[in-house]
Simulated assay, not measured.
Amino acid sequence: MPARDIYHNMVKHALIKAGWRITHDPLRLQWGTRDMYVDLGAEALIAAEQQDQKIAVEIKSFIGPSEIEDLRNALGQFVLYRTILETTEPERTLYLAVREATFFAIFDEPVGKLLIEQQDLHLIVFRPDHEEVIQWIP
């Protein structure tokens, strides 16, 4: 089992507050002989526009010595997981969960905006101190 990100429980609680039911903690992906784990799997509980929605959430703290290295690693993991999910669970959308400070430091900058657009990157922006989701992109 992989180690949990330091924000794991905060994101989990934020999703529950936002009306999601956690179905997997973690969500196991399997391809060939390889096992991989996305941090969370969830289904919408409320709101008509979220009916039958399933998501997978990979949580990233971006606390390493290099933001660009953290970004490269997170993006590589995101692309790998999304590729497998598109085949095994095409109804599930993969999101990368980042804290608000990380969003503004990386994803609200030109390189982050380029990745969101060109890589079809889905983000959940959260506030760890309030355990709340503040933005879904897209």
Rank of each mutant, 00 (worst) to 15 (best):
Trp31Ser: 15
Asp129Leu: 09
Arg34Gln: 15
Trp136Arg: 05
Gly76Ser: 14
Pro110Leu: 09
Leu123Phe: 02
Ile16Arg: 10
Pro65Met: 08
Pro65Ala: 14
Asn73Asp: 11
His13Cys: 08
Arg28Asp: 11
Gln53Lys: 13
Ile68Ala: 14
Glu58Ala: 12
Pro138Lys: 07
Pro90Ile: 05
Leu123Glu: 00
Ile6Lys: 14
Pro2Trp: 06
Lys17Asp: 09
Leu123Ile: 08
Asp35Ser: 11
Glu67Phe: 07
His8Trp: 14
Ala3Ile: 00
Leu94Val: 06
Leu75Lys: 07
Glu58Asn: 09
Ala48Lys: 13
Pro26Phe: 04
His24Thr: 03
Trp136Thr: 10
Thr93Ala: 14
Glu89Ser: 14
Val57Asn: 05
Pro128Phe: 09
Tyr7Thr: 03
Pro128Leu: 01
Asp70Gln: 01
Trp31Tyr: 14
Gln118Thr: 12
Asp25Leu: 04
Ala3Arg: 13
Asp39Gly: 06
Lys113Leu: 11
Tyr37Glu: 15
His130Gly: 06
Glu67Gln: 13
Gly32Ser: 06
Arg99Pro: 03
Arg28Pro: 10
Ile137Pro: 02
Ala44Val: 01
Leu80Val: 14
Ala42Thr: 12
Asp108Met: 05
Gln53Ile: 00
Met1Ser: 15
Ile46Asn: 10
Ile84Lys: 09
Gly32Lys: 12
Glu86Met: 14
Leu71Ile: 00
Phe126Met: 01
Thr23Pro: 02
Gln119Phe: 13
Val57Met: 06
His130Met: 10
Trp20Phe: 11
Arg4Asp: 12
Leu80Cys: 14
Met1Trp: 09
Phe126Glu: 01
Pro65Ile: 09
His130Gln: 13
Ala56Asp: 06
Gln53Met: 15
Ala42Asn: 07
Ala101Phe: 00
Leu121Asp: 03
Ile106Leu: 11
Lys113Trp: 02
Thr23Ile: 11
Ala44Leu: 00
Ser61Trp: 05
Ala18Arg: 10
Gln30Tyr: 08
Leu29Trp: 08
Leu75Gln: 07
Asp70Leu: 08
Leu80Tyr: 06
Leu75Glu: 04
Ile84Ser: 05
Ala74Ser: 12
Glu69His: 13
Arg99Trp: 00
Lys17Val: 02
Gly41Lys: 02
Thr87Trp: 11
Phe62Ser: 00
Arg34Tyr: 13
Gly64His: 06
Glu67Arg: 13
Ile106Gly: 08
Pro65Trp: 06
Arg72His: 10
Leu15Gly: 03
Gly32Val: 02
Glu89Met: 15
Thr33Tyr: 12
Gly19Val: 06
Ile22Phe: 05
Thr88Ala: 10
Gly41Pro: 01
Asn73Ser: 09
Phe107Thr: 01
Ala74Arg: 01
Phe126Arg: 00
Ala42Val: 05
Leu29His: 03
Leu71Asp: 08
Leu96Val: 01
Asp129Ile: 13
Ile137Asn: 02
Ala56Pro: 02
Lys113Ser: 09
Val11Asn: 04
Ala3Gly: 07
Ala48Trp: 00
Trp20Asn: 04
Glu49Asp: 11
Glu132Trp: 01
Val111Tyr: 03
Gly76Val: 07
Gly19Pro: 01
Ala48Leu: 10
Thr83Glu: 13
Glu86Gly: 11
Asn73Trp: 11
Ile116Glu: 09
